[in-house]
Simulated scan of single mutants.
Amino acid sequence: MTEQAGPRTVTIRDVARLAGVSTSTVSRVLDDRHPPSTSPSAERVRAAAAELGYRPDAYASGLRRQHTGTVGVLVPRLSDTVMAVFFEEVARACARQAGFAMVATTEDRPEAEKATVETLLRQRVDGLILTTARLEDPVAAQLRAQGVPHVLALRTDHISPSATGDDELGGYLATRHLLDLGHRNIALVAGPSYASTAVARQAGYRRAMTEAGIHEVDHLVHESTFGMDSGETVARAILADPDRPTAIFAVNDNTAIGVLAAAQAAGLSVPEDLSVVGYNDIPVSARLPVALTTVRVPFDQIAANAVELLTQQRTGALGEPRRVVTPTLIPRQSTARPPATGIARGRRKPQERPGRMPT
């Protein structure tokens, strides 16, 4: 079902029209940095603003802000390694232009995003880089309406300027790797449907499976969050199925680590009983007891693209509004050919699992 559009945002043009003054007068009267005026026109402006429900906010002030060399970066949480790594890359990209990046978190809660954006804009940042975008994101829509320079990074809403990886290709590469090893019963821990990254990686998975002649995959796709706990919970259910898969592609490395934990709990050896592929290639992936096969995302390139797109908006030189970089499959120890036909795939005793995760 399509959601009903919310009420139209009241702008300073609406206030100016009702008060019978110019937009610059409205901007000056409602700017709390200026001494309050008691002139008749100022009174009309305040009355019009109250009648229309207009509230001056950080979005509008962004249009009047002078260059400060500071970029605001919005992330769901810094405890997520991907977000921490990406912010560090943005900070480096800003430093190369003698700029500075500051970060704020939202815990991936939409209701917190608008307030966090306003807080960053009150710090007089030149623009915003948001990794929190959801499909049909109202915050991105409001930023566009107010003309605030911003770039969506890692995720996109397919409208605002964005810097991302080719997630559809990455999902395809991960699944193709498992198919090339001989797997056919491949489950997907798919991530949340509101995130473009998860949607695109699932599309890549489905394309690879279709090319292999496997058309019925809905029963193999399991929605999750991006966290380890969710990956483990979903994988426990997947592995409890009597016709459990021989391989799992997880939407990111965190959920893949959760899958590894679930495999250990089920008494399965990785990769002898179950192959696992993650996504992002966070630093820990190569250092796990069973090194994780994953898809490497060039976060440094995405960060550089995001900063460049933001600079182009500020200077009025915006070219191609969407930058997409290519991911790379990194095969490691967590994937192998599936168990031979006819060999029982049951529980093993812990001492019989040479590649099991530590307790």
Results as ranks from 00 to 15, higher is better:
Val139Ser: 07
Asp166Trp: 00
Val295Tyr: 10
Ile214Cys: 02
Asp218Val: 04
Val234Trp: 08
Val15Ser: 07
Gly227Asp: 15
Tyr59Arg: 12
Arg92His: 11
Arg134Lys: 10
Gly99Cys: 03
Asp243Gln: 15
Thr23Cys: 10
Val26Gly: 00
Thr116Lys: 01
Glu168Gly: 14
Asp157Asn: 10
Leu188Ala: 03
Gly171Ile: 00
Ala208Ile: 15
His67Ile: 10
Val26Arg: 07
Met1Asp: 04
Arg144Ala: 10
Pro339Ile: 13
Thr293Asn: 01
Glu223Ile: 07
Glu136Leu: 12
Pro242Glu: 02
Gln312Phe: 02
Met357Ala: 00
Thr2Arg: 14
Ile343Cys: 11
Phe249Met: 04
Thr294Tyr: 01
Ser196Asn: 00
Thr23Met: 10
Ser193Gln: 09
Gly355Leu: 11
Val259Cys: 00
Arg345Trp: 14
Thr105Glu: 03
Arg96Cys: 14
Arg322Leu: 08
Gln4Gly: 08
Ser285Gln: 10
Ser160Trp: 01
Arg176His: 00
Gly62His: 05
Val125Gln: 05
Arg55Leu: 15
Pro245Tyr: 01
Arg345Gln: 14
Gly147Ile: 09
Ala340Ile: 06
Thr293Leu: 01
Arg28Met: 06
Val297Asn: 02
Ala240Lys: 01
Val10His: 01
Ser24Ala: 13
Leu268His: 02
Ala93Gln: 09
His34Ile: 08
Pro36Gln: 08
Pro56Arg: 15
Thr116Gln: 00
Gln142Pro: 06
Pro321Phe: 03
Ala256Leu: 08
Glu88Val: 04
Gln313Phe: 06
Val15Glu: 00
Glu107Leu: 08
Arg28His: 12
Phe249Glu: 02
Val85Cys: 06
Ser269Ile: 11
Ser160Pro: 04
Thr11Gly: 13
Gly171Glu: 06
Phe249Ser: 03
Ala95Trp: 05
Ala16His: 14
Gly53His: 00
Arg176Trp: 03
Thr225Leu: 08
Gln301Trp: 02
Thr119Met: 13
Arg323Asp: 08
Glu88Asn: 10
Val234Leu: 09
Pro161His: 09
Arg46Pro: 02
Ile159Met: 11
Thr38Gly: 04
Gly69Tyr: 15
Ser334Ala: 01
Thr2Val: 15
Pro36Leu: 05
Leu239Tyr: 12
Pro7Asp: 09
Arg134Val: 00
Ala163Asp: 03
Ala195Pro: 09
Ala95Val: 07
Leu30Glu: 11
Gln301Val: 02
Arg323His: 01
Ser79Tyr: 06
Thr164Trp: 01
Thr25Arg: 09
Val29Ile: 00
Gly316Leu: 12
Gly72Ser: 08
Thr106Arg: 09
Ala133Lys: 04
Gly99Ala: 09
Ser61Trp: 11
Tyr205Thr: 06
Gly72Tyr: 05
Ser24Thr: 10
Gln301Pro: 00
Ser224Gln: 08
Ser285Met: 10
Val26Gln: 03
Ile248Thr: 00
Gly342Met: 12
Leu130Ser: 12
Ala256His: 05
Ala208Asp: 13
Leu220Ser: 12
Ile186Tyr: 03
Val234Pro: 07
Met83Leu: 14
Ala42Arg: 14
Ala190His: 12
Arg96Tyr: 13
Val125His: 04
Val90Ile: 11
Ala84Leu: 09
Gly346Val: 15
